[in-house]
Protein backbone atom coordinates (compact mmCIF):
# COMPACT_ATOMS: atom_id res chain seq x y z
CA UNK A 1 0.00 0.00 0.00
CA UNK A 2 2.74 2.39 1.06
CA UNK A 3 4.87 1.48 -1.99
CA UNK A 4 1.87 2.13 -4.16
CA UNK A 5 1.66 5.70 -2.88
CA UNK A 6 5.40 6.29 -3.36
CA UNK A 7 5.23 5.13 -6.98
CA UNK A 8 2.20 7.32 -7.60
CA UNK A 9 3.93 10.28 -5.98
CA UNK A 10 6.99 9.81 -8.20
CA UNK A 11 4.85 9.52 -11.31
CA UNK A 12 2.89 12.66 -10.40
CA UNK A 13 5.86 14.86 -9.53
CA UNK A 14 8.09 13.70 -12.40
CA UNK A 15 5.26 14.16 -14.90
CA UNK A 16 4.78 17.72 -13.73
CA UNK A 17 8.49 18.56 -14.01
CA UNK A 18 9.11 16.87 -17.36
CA UNK A 19 5.97 18.18 -19.02
CA UNK A 20 6.49 21.64 -17.51
CA UNK A 21 9.99 21.77 -19.03
CA UNK A 22 8.59 20.53 -22.35
CA UNK A 23 5.92 23.24 -22.32
CA UNK A 24 8.61 25.82 -21.58
CA UNK A 25 10.66 24.67 -24.56
CA UNK A 26 7.66 24.64 -26.89
CA UNK A 27 6.69 28.05 -25.53
CA UNK A 28 10.12 29.47 -26.38
CA UNK A 29 9.78 28.25 -29.96
CA UNK A 30 6.27 29.68 -30.10
CA UNK A 31 7.41 33.14 -28.95
CA UNK A 32 10.29 32.99 -31.42
CA UNK A 33 7.88 32.30 -34.28
CA UNK A 34 5.78 35.30 -33.23
CA UNK A 35 8.96 37.37 -33.51
CA UNK A 36 9.78 35.75 -36.89
CA UNK A 37 12.82 33.86 -35.74
CA UNK A 38 13.49 30.24 -34.82
CA UNK A 39 14.98 29.76 -31.31
CA UNK A 40 16.59 26.50 -30.18
CA UNK A 41 15.19 22.97 -30.20
CA UNK A 42 12.07 22.13 -28.17
CA UNK A 43 14.20 20.26 -25.61
CA UNK A 44 16.31 23.35 -24.87
CA UNK A 45 14.95 23.65 -21.30
CA UNK A 46 16.21 20.15 -20.42
CA UNK A 47 19.70 21.10 -21.65
CA UNK A 48 19.54 24.29 -19.59
CA UNK A 49 18.58 22.42 -16.42
CA UNK A 50 21.34 19.81 -16.82
CA UNK A 51 23.87 22.57 -17.43
CA UNK A 52 22.69 24.50 -14.37
CA UNK A 53 23.08 21.45 -12.14
CA UNK A 54 26.57 20.85 -13.55
CA UNK A 55 27.76 24.33 -12.59
CA UNK A 56 29.36 25.38 -9.33
CA UNK A 57 27.01 27.31 -7.10
CA UNK A 58 27.38 29.66 -4.19
CA UNK A 59 25.22 29.71 -1.07
CA UNK A 60 25.15 32.69 1.26
CA UNK A 61 23.35 31.20 4.25
CA UNK A 62 21.85 27.87 5.20
CA UNK A 63 18.44 29.56 5.11
CA UNK A 64 19.04 30.09 1.40
CA UNK A 65 19.49 26.36 0.73
CA UNK A 66 16.49 25.60 2.92
CA UNK A 67 14.23 28.24 1.37
CA UNK A 68 14.93 27.18 -2.20
CA UNK A 69 14.19 23.55 -1.31
CA UNK A 70 11.00 24.64 0.47
CA UNK A 71 9.87 26.60 -2.56
CA UNK A 72 10.46 23.63 -4.86
CA UNK A 73 8.86 21.08 -2.57
CA UNK A 74 5.92 23.42 -1.89
CA UNK A 75 5.00 23.36 -5.57
CA UNK A 76 5.55 19.57 -5.77
CA UNK A 77 3.33 19.12 -2.70
CA UNK A 78 0.59 21.05 -4.50
CA UNK A 79 0.95 19.18 -7.79
CA UNK A 80 0.22 15.83 -6.15
CA UNK A 81 -3.30 17.02 -5.29
CA UNK A 82 -3.98 17.91 -8.91
CA UNK A 83 -5.94 15.42 -11.01
CA UNK A 84 -3.67 14.70 -13.99
CA UNK A 85 -6.22 13.62 -16.57
CA UNK A 86 -7.90 10.74 -14.75
CA UNK A 87 -4.83 9.93 -12.66
CA UNK A 88 -4.87 10.81 -8.95
CA UNK A 89 -1.81 10.54 -6.73
CA UNK A 90 -4.09 10.17 -3.69
CA UNK A 91 -7.24 8.51 -5.05
CA UNK A 92 -9.18 9.36 -1.87
CA UNK A 93 -8.45 13.11 -1.91
CA UNK A 94 -9.88 13.80 -5.38
CA UNK A 95 -8.17 17.19 -5.74
CA UNK A 96 -9.57 19.48 -3.08
CA UNK A 97 -9.46 23.06 -4.40
CA UNK A 98 -9.15 24.60 -0.94
CA UNK A 99 -6.03 22.53 -0.18
CA UNK A 100 -4.56 23.37 -3.58
CA UNK A 101 -5.08 27.12 -3.11
CA UNK A 102 -3.64 26.95 0.39
CA UNK A 103 -0.54 24.97 -0.63
CA UNK A 104 0.14 27.04 -3.72
CA UNK A 105 1.37 29.97 -1.62
CA UNK A 106 3.97 27.80 0.18
CA UNK A 107 6.05 27.68 -2.98
CA UNK A 108 6.18 31.46 -3.21
CA UNK A 109 6.87 31.88 0.50
CA UNK A 110 9.71 29.36 0.42
CA UNK A 111 11.26 31.14 -2.51
CA UNK A 112 10.82 34.45 -0.66
CA UNK A 113 12.61 33.11 2.41
CA UNK A 114 15.42 31.61 0.35
CA UNK A 115 16.24 34.59 -1.79
CA UNK A 116 15.87 37.10 1.05
CA UNK A 117 18.70 35.27 2.80
CA UNK A 118 20.93 35.78 -0.24
CA UNK A 119 21.52 39.37 0.86
CA UNK A 120 21.20 41.09 -2.50
CA UNK A 121 18.91 44.15 -2.22
CA UNK A 122 17.27 43.42 -5.58
CA UNK A 123 15.80 40.11 -4.45
CA UNK A 124 13.62 41.47 -1.58
CA UNK A 125 12.34 44.13 -4.01
CA UNK A 126 11.39 41.40 -6.48
CA UNK A 127 9.80 39.26 -3.78
CA UNK A 128 7.85 42.24 -2.42
CA UNK A 129 6.45 42.83 -5.89
CA UNK A 130 5.65 39.13 -6.39
CA UNK A 131 3.72 38.90 -3.12
CA UNK A 132 1.88 42.18 -3.82
CA UNK A 133 0.86 40.85 -7.24
CA UNK A 134 -0.25 37.61 -5.59
CA UNK A 135 -2.79 39.57 -3.53
CA UNK A 136 -3.95 41.02 -6.84
CA UNK A 137 -4.59 37.85 -8.83
CA UNK A 138 -5.78 35.72 -5.92
CA UNK A 139 -8.98 37.83 -5.67
CA UNK A 140 -10.46 37.03 -9.14
CA UNK A 141 -9.13 33.46 -8.94
CA UNK A 142 -10.63 32.88 -5.49
CA UNK A 143 -13.95 34.35 -6.61
CA UNK A 144 -14.01 31.97 -9.58
CA UNK A 145 -13.27 29.07 -7.23
CA UNK A 146 -16.10 30.17 -4.94
CA UNK A 147 -18.44 30.35 -7.95
CA UNK A 148 -17.60 26.79 -8.98
CA UNK A 149 -17.92 25.51 -5.43
CA UNK A 150 -21.37 27.13 -5.24
CA UNK A 151 -22.42 25.73 -8.60
CA UNK A 152 -21.25 22.17 -7.90
CA UNK A 153 -21.92 22.02 -4.19
CA UNK A 154 -18.46 20.55 -3.74
CA UNK A 155 -14.88 21.76 -3.51
CA UNK A 156 -13.44 18.61 -5.11
CA UNK A 157 -11.95 19.00 -8.61
CA UNK A 158 -13.15 15.44 -9.24
CA UNK A 159 -16.80 16.51 -8.91
CA UNK A 160 -16.22 19.69 -10.94
CA UNK A 161 -14.75 17.58 -13.76
CA UNK A 162 -17.57 15.02 -13.50
CA UNK A 163 -20.30 17.64 -14.11
CA UNK A 164 -18.51 18.80 -17.27
CA UNK A 165 -18.39 15.38 -18.94
CA UNK A 166 -20.40 14.30 -21.96
CA UNK A 167 -20.22 17.18 -24.36
CA UNK A 168 -18.28 20.36 -25.01
CA UNK A 169 -21.44 22.29 -24.12
CA UNK A 170 -21.13 21.09 -20.53
CA UNK A 171 -17.76 22.79 -20.08
CA UNK A 172 -17.68 25.55 -17.52
CA UNK A 173 -15.96 27.64 -20.17
CA UNK A 174 -19.32 27.91 -21.96
CA UNK A 175 -21.46 27.89 -18.82
CA UNK A 176 -19.51 30.67 -17.09
CA UNK A 177 -17.62 32.55 -19.85
CA UNK A 178 -17.01 35.74 -17.87
CA UNK A 179 -15.50 33.82 -14.98
CA UNK A 180 -13.21 32.09 -17.48
CA UNK A 181 -12.02 35.43 -18.89
CA UNK A 182 -11.27 36.70 -15.38
CA UNK A 183 -9.39 33.51 -14.52
CA UNK A 184 -7.32 33.62 -17.72
CA UNK A 185 -6.17 37.13 -16.82
CA UNK A 186 -5.35 35.88 -13.32
CA UNK A 187 -3.34 33.03 -14.90
CA UNK A 188 -1.24 35.62 -16.70
CA UNK A 189 -0.28 37.02 -13.29
CA UNK A 190 0.23 33.60 -11.70
CA UNK A 191 2.77 32.61 -14.33
CA UNK A 192 4.46 36.02 -14.09
CA UNK A 193 4.20 36.73 -17.81
CA UNK A 194 3.90 40.19 -19.34
CA UNK A 195 2.15 42.51 -18.59
CA UNK A 196 2.54 41.26 -15.00
CA UNK A 197 6.27 40.48 -14.91
CA UNK A 198 7.24 43.41 -12.69
CA UNK A 199 8.76 40.98 -10.16
CA UNK A 200 11.28 39.68 -12.71
CA UNK A 201 12.02 42.85 -14.74
CA UNK A 202 15.57 41.97 -15.91
CA UNK A 203 16.47 45.48 -17.06
CA UNK A 204 15.19 47.14 -13.93
CA UNK A 205 15.93 45.00 -10.86
CA UNK A 206 18.19 42.43 -12.55
CA UNK A 207 15.70 39.52 -12.65
CA UNK A 208 14.43 40.18 -9.11
CA UNK A 209 14.20 37.05 -6.96
CA UNK A 210 16.71 35.11 -9.08
CA UNK A 211 19.38 37.79 -8.90
CA UNK A 212 21.76 35.92 -6.61
CA UNK A 213 20.89 32.35 -7.62
CA UNK A 214 23.62 30.41 -9.36
CA UNK A 215 24.06 26.87 -10.59
CA UNK A 216 21.85 24.36 -8.80
CA UNK A 217 19.81 27.05 -7.03
CA UNK A 218 18.77 28.52 -10.37
CA UNK A 219 18.22 24.93 -11.54
CA UNK A 220 15.72 24.37 -8.73
CA UNK A 221 14.11 27.71 -9.61
CA UNK A 222 13.76 26.44 -13.19
CA UNK A 223 12.18 23.17 -12.04
CA UNK A 224 9.86 25.08 -9.72
CA UNK A 225 8.72 27.29 -12.57
CA UNK A 226 8.22 24.22 -14.76
CA UNK A 227 5.94 22.47 -12.32
CA UNK A 228 4.22 25.77 -11.58
CA UNK A 229 3.26 26.04 -15.25
CA UNK A 230 1.96 22.47 -15.13
CA UNK A 231 0.04 23.08 -11.90
CA UNK A 232 -1.62 26.37 -12.75
CA UNK A 233 -2.64 25.50 -16.30
CA UNK A 234 -3.78 22.13 -14.89
CA UNK A 235 -6.08 23.71 -12.29
CA UNK A 236 -7.75 25.92 -14.89
CA UNK A 237 -8.06 23.01 -17.33
CA UNK A 238 -9.84 21.02 -14.65
CA UNK A 239 -12.01 23.96 -13.58
CA UNK A 240 -13.15 25.26 -16.97
CA UNK A 241 -12.05 22.97 -19.82
CA UNK A 242 -13.47 19.72 -18.51
CA UNK A 243 -10.29 17.84 -17.54
CA UNK A 244 -10.31 14.95 -19.97
CA UNK A 245 -8.14 11.92 -20.63
CA UNK A 246 -4.40 12.11 -20.17
CA UNK A 247 -3.63 13.26 -23.73
CA UNK A 248 -6.57 15.63 -23.85
CA UNK A 249 -5.58 17.13 -20.51
CA UNK A 250 -2.01 17.80 -21.67
CA UNK A 251 -3.22 19.32 -24.94
CA UNK A 252 -5.57 21.68 -23.13
CA UNK A 253 -2.78 22.67 -20.73
CA UNK A 254 -0.44 23.42 -23.62
CA UNK A 255 -3.17 25.43 -25.33
CA UNK A 256 -3.68 27.53 -22.18
CA UNK A 257 0.06 28.10 -21.82
CA UNK A 258 0.48 29.16 -25.44
CA UNK A 259 -2.52 31.49 -25.08
CA UNK A 260 -0.76 33.07 -22.10
CA UNK A 261 2.46 33.45 -24.08
CA UNK A 262 0.75 34.97 -27.08
CA UNK A 263 -0.76 37.61 -24.81
CA UNK A 264 2.62 38.07 -23.12
CA UNK A 265 4.62 38.57 -26.30
CA UNK A 266 2.68 41.65 -27.42
CA UNK A 267 2.39 43.53 -24.14
CA UNK A 268 4.78 45.79 -22.22
CA UNK A 269 5.01 45.72 -18.44
CA UNK A 270 2.64 47.11 -15.80
CA UNK A 271 4.08 48.80 -12.76
CA UNK A 272 3.21 46.37 -9.98
CA UNK A 273 0.82 48.73 -8.16
CA UNK A 274 -0.98 49.37 -11.46
CA UNK A 275 -1.03 45.60 -11.98
CA UNK A 276 -2.71 45.04 -8.61
CA UNK A 277 -5.22 47.80 -9.36
CA UNK A 278 -5.95 46.21 -12.73
CA UNK A 279 -6.55 42.80 -11.11
CA UNK A 280 -8.89 44.31 -8.55
CA UNK A 281 -10.97 46.12 -11.16
CA UNK A 282 -11.25 44.38 -14.57
CA UNK A 283 -10.91 40.59 -13.95
CA UNK A 284 -12.57 40.84 -10.54
CA UNK A 285 -15.59 42.62 -12.00
CA UNK A 286 -15.81 39.99 -14.78
CA UNK A 287 -15.94 37.19 -12.21
CA UNK A 288 -18.25 39.13 -9.87
CA UNK A 289 -20.63 39.78 -12.76
CA UNK A 290 -20.74 36.03 -13.46
CA UNK A 291 -21.28 35.29 -9.78
CA UNK A 292 -24.21 37.73 -9.61
CA UNK A 293 -25.71 36.28 -12.83
CA UNK A 294 -25.42 32.80 -11.32
CA UNK A 295 -27.08 33.86 -8.06
CA UNK A 296 -29.96 35.59 -9.92
CA UNK A 297 -30.53 32.54 -12.16
CA UNK A 298 -30.66 30.31 -9.13
Amino acid sequence: MMNNYIVRFLIGSLTSIILGLLYMGIGRKFIARIRRCYAGPFYQSFIDVIKLFSKHSISHHWIMDFGIMMGFSGIIATVIFLPIGNFYVFPDMKGNLIIIMYFMTIGYLGMAMGVSASGNPNSPIGIGRALALMIGYEIPFALAVILLIFANGSSLLYNIIQTQQGSIYNWNLLKYPFAFIGTIIALQGMLGEQPFDAMIAPAEIASGPMVELSGKFLGFGFLQHASQIFLETGIITAMFLGGGTIIGFFTKQLFLYLLTLSIASVFPRFRFEDGVKFFWTIPTSFVLFQLILFLIKR
Partner: peptide
Protein backbone atom coordinates in the same frame (compact mmCIF):
# COMPACT_ATOMS: atom_id res chain seq x y z
CA UNK B 1 20.53 37.00 -36.62
CA UNK B 2 18.67 35.08 -33.89
CA UNK B 3 21.33 33.95 -31.45
CA UNK B 4 18.78 31.84 -29.52
CA UNK B 5 19.13 29.15 -32.20
CA UNK B 6 22.32 28.08 -30.40
CA UNK B 7 20.63 28.13 -27.01
CA UNK B 8 22.32 31.39 -26.09
CA UNK B 9 20.59 34.20 -24.32
CA UNK B 10 21.30 37.35 -22.38
CA UNK B 11 21.30 37.11 -18.57
CA UNK B 12 20.85 39.85 -16.04
CA UNK B 13 23.47 39.06 -13.40
CA UNK B 14 26.96 37.53 -13.26
CA UNK B 15 25.78 34.73 -10.95
CA UNK B 16 23.53 33.27 -13.64
Amino acid sequence: WDMERFGMGPMATPRQ
